[in-house]
């Protein structure tokens, strides 16, 4: 039986947040907690205890990488896997993001119908 990860999704654009929620919860059946900023994510993470971070890359104040580093600095969070979402589709930028510690990079616009399955595949690939 597939174990679904609990996802903490951080995205500053409210419309994209809503689309992603529908895609992950309604289409994919995943449990999702959403935050609008990196700071909010750092605040929520200890309570949510996410299995996986889904982070928008371009956000004001704290970008995706800064958010990841801040969450991983929390007690018990150092190994939490992260997926970045970015509209900057250049290969080199995606490679750079992987070097920042993400397990995968998903390009925007994402496919709302397959987003949940894509995340599940990545999650299961982590073993």
């Amino acid at each position: 039986m597939t174990v679904f990860p609990k996802v903490l999704h951080v995205e500053d654009d409210a419309d994209i947040r809503e689309i992603a929620r529908l895609a992950l919860e309604v289409i994919g059946g995943l449990t999702v907690k959403q935050c609008a900023t990196g700071a909010e994510a750092v605040q929520q993470a200890p309570e949510v205890k996410p299995d996986l971070l889904l982070l928008d890359m371009s956000m004001p104040d704290m970008n995706g990488v800064e958010t990841l580093n801040a969450v991983r600095a929390l007690p018990g969070m150092s190994g939490v896997p992260a997926i970045f979402m970015t509209a900057r589709a250049q290969l080199q930028e995606q490679t750079d993001l992987l070097q920042e510690g993400a397990v995968a990079v998903i390009s925007k616009p994402f496919d709302a119908m397959t987003l949940a399955q894509e995340i599940l595949d990545i999650w299961q690939g982590l073993g």
Binding site: I16, L22, A87, Q90, M113
Partner: peptide
């Protein structure tokens, strides 16, 4: 260019996602 790309892709992400979800019949 990267900023322009981001600014255009962000609304397109929402529009495309919303349409795909509606078209799926799940809504």
């Amino acid at each position: 260019v990267a900023t322009l790309s981001h600014e255009m892709r962000t609304p397109l992400t929402s529009i495309k996602g919303a349409m795909d979800l509606i078209a799926s019949g799940q809504m």
